[in-house]
Amino acid sequence: MVFERSSRGSRRRYNSIAVGSIPPSDSPLRVKLIGENPQILLEGEPMLRRGLLDWNVFHVEHSLGLLRADLKRVLAQRNAALRQAGDAASFWDPAFVELSDRINARRAVFVEEWRTQLRPLADEFPFLEGCDLAFDRGWAADRDLSDLLKRGRSAEIHRGQTLAGAHRADIRISRDGVSSRFSRGQAKVAVCLLQLAAERVHRRKGLAPSLWLLDDIDAELDSTTAGKLWRLFGDSDGQQFVARLSHELGSVRDEADNPDALFHVEQGTLAPSEPAGVPSPTTSSL
């Protein structure tokens, strides 16, 4: 990957090809991280979930990156016009609506495939019974965005910002149309399954396996639930880097013909660890 910057702007190239022009099957290495507090994705601001959605869509629809950049530019201009309390905002409506529709179309296609791949994974965990992945496109499903912008102009001028459009899209896990509430451990499982389901969509599109970075997945999970998760990660094709505070045999994939490489970190020093050895409580396993 090469990053170039000049007076004309910046661009990224992979194997001498502009990143936006690379077909999905030749995409650069994809890295999927599940950190120590993945539940913040479900509990935090919509922009976090929108970012997860768009990052996954981008790998199969590279045009999304340019569309998002254009939407951001038009949205900034439209919001500036609204803050001036004039009619200039209407000048930006056609471009804003067109970009919102084009982005929404790409998101909606991916979400439908995402839902299909998520269902069999969710079936493994009783607390997710009846749950589904819901997509909010950023404006009412039964309303035309152009009409909404016209009817809501006074409210937008009062708030100084655009209140409907692709920039307000969100995803959520719901049951019977109501957002599901999870414990911290359950939310962690749900986020892991979202990532695993997205990876299945990518693989079906011909993309190479992702590199997984998994940080302390076992925390806040009982052994049965953790075991199910490790089995699902083990079934994926991608290489995994696993950081843990302790090591228990059987949790991380352990195949005779392809054993896991184990290391431990102590006082900043990385050293190999024998599979039979159990690090001390102050030692991290990688």
Rank of each mutant, 00 (worst) to 15 (best):
I40K: 06
E248I: 12
A271V: 15
D93M: 13
L145G: 01
D132T: 13
E113V: 14
H167W: 00
R175D: 03
A141I: 12
D93G: 09
R12N: 06
I157P: 04
A187V: 10
R153M: 04
A208I: 07
G35R: 15
P120D: 03
D237M: 12
P259W: 14
L52A: 07
R244S: 14
F182A: 04
E4D: 09
Q240W: 08
D216W: 05
I171V: 09
P126R: 13
L229D: 12
T283C: 10
R68F: 00
V201S: 04
R200A: 11
D101M: 13
V57D: 09
C131E: 10
L149N: 02
F58W: 08
W55D: 10
T269C: 09
Q117E: 15
L229A: 07
N104F: 02
M1F: 07
R153F: 05
A261L: 11
A89G: 04
A134H: 09
C131S: 09
G250H: 03
R73M: 00
V60H: 02
E220R: 04
A140W: 10
I173N: 00
E98D: 11
L245P: 00
L67G: 00
D170C: 02
T116E: 09
A166E: 01
N104R: 02
S251L: 14
A243Q: 11
S174V: 11
Q84M: 10
A108E: 13
V189K: 01
